[in-house]
Design a protein around this nucleic acid. Structure first.
Length: 142
DNA sequence: CTTCTCACA
DNA sequence: TGTGAGGA
């Protein structure tokens, strides 16, 4: 293998993270770049690990979970065990998200009810809302 | 610029 | 799960 390395700043620029984040991941045991003197040198493998970490983060996994998932590389249960763990994590994460989703739906429904109450009360006292004719807009997030 | 530690949300 | 500060 040709040893091409990345410096900490190269990685921070490539992945839009800070040096402190990278060092933090290292302190948490998720990365272990080699050193040239006191400087960190990240191998292509380290870079790949970092990608995995960031992907895990996007999916909402904790660093501990991510560490658990990618950390068992070449360990006892092997790849099959690793994949099983991943499946478990995915199921758990989906359940968690669906639960939140239901909570949000409930809250939205309650907001509608409160709003309806406010509107009818306003009508009773003969007042008018500024936007009484405007449709309720709900923008989706990107 | 890099490194580290400590406090803090 | 990181950030801010301050020093080397």
């Amino acid at each position: 293998m040709q040893q091409r390395f990345y410096t900490i700043t190269q990685l921070t620029q490539e992945f839009a993270i800070t040096t402190r984040t990278l060092r933090f991941y290292e302190a948490q045991g998720l990365l272990s770049p080699q050193r040239r003197g006191r400087q960190r040198l990240y191998s292509p493998a380290d870079r790949t690990r970092l990608k995995l970490i960031l992907r895990g983060k996007r999916l909402g996994f904790s660093l501990a979970e991510i560490s658990e998932m990618i950390g068992m590389y070449g360990k006892a249960p092997g790849e099959a065990g690793q994949l099983r763990l991943l499946m478990e994590k995915i199921t758990a994460r989906r359940t968690e998200l669906l639960e939140k989703y239901r909570d949000i739906e409930l809250t939205l429904k309650e907001l509608d009810e409160v709003e309806a109450g406010a509107r009818s009360r306003m009508a009773e006292i003969g007042g008018v809302f500024e936007d009484s004719a405007a449709p309720v807009l709900r923008e989706e997030e990107a």
